[in-house]
Simulated assay, not measured.
Amino acid sequence: MAEPKDDDFLDDPERAEAEARAFETEEIDDADVELETLRAERDEMKDKWMRALADAENSRKRADKQRREAEQYGGSKLARDMLPVYDNLKRALEAAGDKTEENTALLEGIELTMRELSNTFRKHGLVVISPAVGDKFDPNQHEAMFEAPVPGTKAGEIIQVSAEGFMLHDRLLRPAQVGVSSFTG
């Protein structure tokens, strides 16, 4: 709006008053627009800040979860590689049979090694899954190596244990390998 001339107001006082009101209104409108613009920018910045804050919190939680999982399950490859050692020690004990004068020292050495390995497994959260003949087959912990109709058993019962299984904390590292009855008589 053009600046009013001083001599225009002298001729028409009503016009001068109207123009003064319009000039004030225009200043108020400009201030309102500027205030609304600043509020919109503030709200946009607050929204961006809140999102960045939430993003940072989510990243922190994700990193914390990954750290915990790495602590618990980071050794799973090594543990999996040690399972055949456990199996072989167990087979050696079973194959040796009863203690005799000749094999007592050897059997005691194998038993000691087996006990130490079992303690180390337990210390690191590795738990043996040791099903027994007659237990019910559980596909979450057992792997059926074969099925056979064995009289005197129910379908789904374990009839032979080929190898023990292992859990690492709450995860299955290796299922127990078993034979399962398919007898329905």
Rank of each mutant, 00 (worst) to 15 (best):
E108K: 15
N88H: 13
R62I: 13
P151H: 03
M145L: 11
F137H: 10
D8F: 12
M145E: 06
A144P: 12
A79Q: 07
F146K: 08
G97T: 11
K136I: 15
T25K: 04
S76E: 09
E157V: 02
S181M: 00
R60H: 12
G74H: 14
F121S: 05
D11E: 13
R60T: 13
Q66K: 15
Q72R: 14
M50P: 00
G185I: 02
T120W: 08
E69K: 03
A52W: 14
A2W: 01
G152Q: 07
I129E: 03
L89G: 00
I28T: 06
S182M: 04
I129W: 05
T25H: 13
L93T: 06
Q141W: 11
F166C: 02
V33H: 04
D43Q: 14
K48G: 09
D30N: 09
E116G: 00
L168G: 01
K123C: 04
E36N: 14
I158D: 00
K46D: 12
Q72N: 11
G134R: 02
R67H: 03
G134Q: 05
R68L: 08
G152I: 07
I129V: 15
D32P: 00
P149I: 08
G75P: 02
E3T: 14
A40G: 06
G75T: 08
F137S: 04
E69A: 03
P151R: 08
L35E: 08
N140I: 00
P4V: 13
I28H: 09
A63F: 04
A18F: 06
V33M: 03
A40E: 11
L117T: 00
G156N: 05
G185M: 00
D55H: 13
E41K: 15
L78C: 01
R115H: 04
K5L: 15
D43G: 09
D135K: 10
P84L: 09
E41M: 09
Y73E: 08
R21W: 05
F146G: 07
E41T: 02
S59M: 12
Y73M: 15
P4E: 14
M114N: 07
M50H: 09
K61L: 15
K136P: 03
G125N: 08
W49S: 10
F146M: 13
A54M: 12
E143L: 08
K77A: 14
S182I: 07
E164W: 02
L107D: 00
M114F: 09
N103H: 05
V127T: 15
M45I: 05
E94N: 10
H169G: 02
L53I: 03
R80K: 13
H142M: 10
K46Q: 05
R60C: 07
Q72P: 00
T120E: 10
V85M: 10
V178F: 02
T104K: 15
F146N: 12
D55N: 15
R122C: 02
A22R: 06
G109D: 00
A92T: 13
T100S: 11
N140Y: 04
A18N: 11
D87V: 07
E27F: 02
E36L: 14
K61G: 01
L83E: 02
D12N: 13
D8L: 07
A18H: 05
S181A: 09
E157F: 01
